[in-house]
Amino acid sequence: MTVEDKLKEKINEIIDDLDLLVGYSASELPLKVNPVFIKNREDVKNLVFNKLCINNLATYIYNLSKKIKGTAGIVLKPCDASSVIQLLSEGLLDREKTRMIVAGCSGVFDYKKIQKHLGGQKIISLELENGNLEVGTINKKNTLKAADFYADKCYWCQIYNKPPLYDDFIENDQEPGIQPADKYADLEIIESKSIEEIMNYWDGQFSRCIRCYACRNVCPLEICQDRCITNLDEPYWQSQRINTQEGKFFQMIRVMHLAGRCTECGECERACPKNIPLAKLMKKSAQIVERLFDYKAGQEIDKKPPFLTFKDVEQNIKEENLS
């Protein structure tokens, strides 16, 4: 019995307790799955759960919780569960009204990597066989090594089969079989450069930014949405101009507002139409927060986020004295 069948069985049991369920359904595109909102038992058969479910459905839960009276059910991967835990720990969600249905994960494929590998050809089919991906393009069948095409976050995932918190857990017998990689390797490459080179690197990346705000809108923790300070005239933080500086400043707003909150789901980078490596910024910020405040976002519900609390004596902060 696959994890998908077990998930459907579980949801059939509990669907009557829920006002609404957020899950994945099949899409016409071979590399993607769609989010689906289910109210009736008949629609449960449309659910899917497979290695293409890269989307973080926790994105929807905050707005949904404002709109519905009863319980909202949500299908999550263990990594997505940490986004919900973070929202709960900040008091933004009602624990009673949120039902976390966590399915064990065996890694998800990053469709952007597959598309890039095939040079942007149109993909018409995708199958997984014996650790190989059979990707059909219009005139050819390509065999790719599946282990190279997982989402970045899967290579250092520790919780694929043990979510920190859940209401219902569906175990996944399938081992991910992914060779773990060094999480901070790409940060070290950047940090080994000189300060001007780093500036030029980011200027180059952000010269592509079109300020579409996809990164903000897809983020499960950026609940400000259209009340974001970048859209305000008073106080006036940012102009509507599109250039490198403004794009970079917008990203700094995101970094500052997500420091100590980001659970590194990588959705911002996935949603970016210009492929700006936003996850690197988030990873760096999480690394600093962990080192300074010994805090990892999305792990415990009772722990206060680092910027909402303080200590008299901060062990990890060394203040410089200029006098």
Partner: peptide, 22 residues
């Protein structure tokens, strides 16, 4: 307690600045 909160934010920023080239 204002400066205690400030210390946490500013220390975070100080650590982050080199990563964006400042």
């Amino acid at each position: 307690e204002g400066n205690f909160y400030a210390r946490r934010r500013l220390e975070f920023l100080k650590e982050f600045l080199p990563f964006i080239g400042i």
